[in-house]
């Protein structure tokens, strides 16, 4: 391993107490074959500039907190290897979110929407523990399993142009989580979630760009969840028009 090779990290900086607008600051860091962008940022923080702010925790694509724009693409910085980039890597906070400081974005909007879709099982009736577990077959599990893999990293929101143009849009991760619970055989909360999913700001703001699914590091495929919700909501709507419909 050669230790002389270096790369330049161009990091977007924004210090709210002094800066009117963000600007880029360059740091020269060692190139290490096994390093990901997060390692390079940690090198900067430990050795070059302690003031750089960014979020991270697990370093293994589980916690979902180190999402950022890397050369213009939303990525988990713990999964983006230096070896896949050139000698200059541009790092910015996730697009479409307000910048709190440096690479840290304000995610309150997502948290509010995520809460609104009720991301938990709503059972028809609680059964007493003595009656045992809520059983589920492998096929029933398979129906929604893919949509459970979301780690709320928000790369999908940073990729979604409709979210960029209409911040009211509930957005990919929240809508696909709603779909996940709707598909769960133990759940009966779909009607409640549809109040959000089938509203104007719900699935109907989506024009199926598909960028959310392209950038998803866990292959959740939110675009698929949203299209399936559109079809199901359309069926509901037409059924309600039939005699005896609600």
């Amino acid at each position: 391993m050669s230790n002389d090779r270096t790369i330049t990290l161009e990091v977007m900086r924004y210090r709210p107490e002094t800066d009117a607008a963000p600007s880029f600051q360059s740091y020269v860091v060692p190139y290490v074959e096994e390093w990901v962008v997060l390692d390079a940022l940690n090198y900067v923080k430990d050795n070059l500039d302690t003031t750089v702010s960014y979020r991270w925790s697990c370093h293994m694509a589980v916690c979902g907190s180190c999402g950022m724009m890397i050369d213009g693409e939303p990525k988990l910085s713990c999964k983006a290897f230096l070896r896949d980039y050139g000698s200059k890597i541009r790092v910015e906070p996730l697009s479409h979110f307000p910048i709190e400081r440096d690479l840290v974005v304000v995610i309150d909007d997502f948290i509010e929407k995520f809460t609104r879709i009720r991301p938990y099982i709503i059972a028809q009736s609680e059964k007493p523990v003595s009656e045992g577990e809520y059983l589920q077959t492998p096929a029933q599990l398979h129906k929604y399993k893919q949509f459970t893999l979301c780690i709320n990293c928000l790369l999908c929101y940073a990729a979604c142009p409709q979210y960029a143009h209409n911040p009211e849009f509930v957005g990919p991760a929240a809508l696909s989580m709603a779909h996940r619970y709707n598909l769960d055989s133990r759940d009966s909360g779909r009607d409640l979630r549809q109040e959000v999913s089938a509203s104007h700001e719900g699935v109907w703001e989506c024009s199926f760009v598909g960028a959310c699914s392209d950038v998803c590091p866990k292959h959740v495929d939110p675009a698929a969840a949203i299209q399936q919700t559109k079809i199901a909501s359309t069926m509901d709507y037409y059924k309600a028009l039939l005699p005896g419909g609600k």
Binding site: A198, G202, W204, T234
Partner: peptide, 15 residues
């Protein structure tokens, strides 16, 4: 949040 009437037109779009 109001229920959307988009399905009328979206059904025609998709079909």
């Amino acid at each position: 949040m109001a229920k959307s009437h988009k399905p009328i037109i979206w059904g025609l779009f998709a079909g």
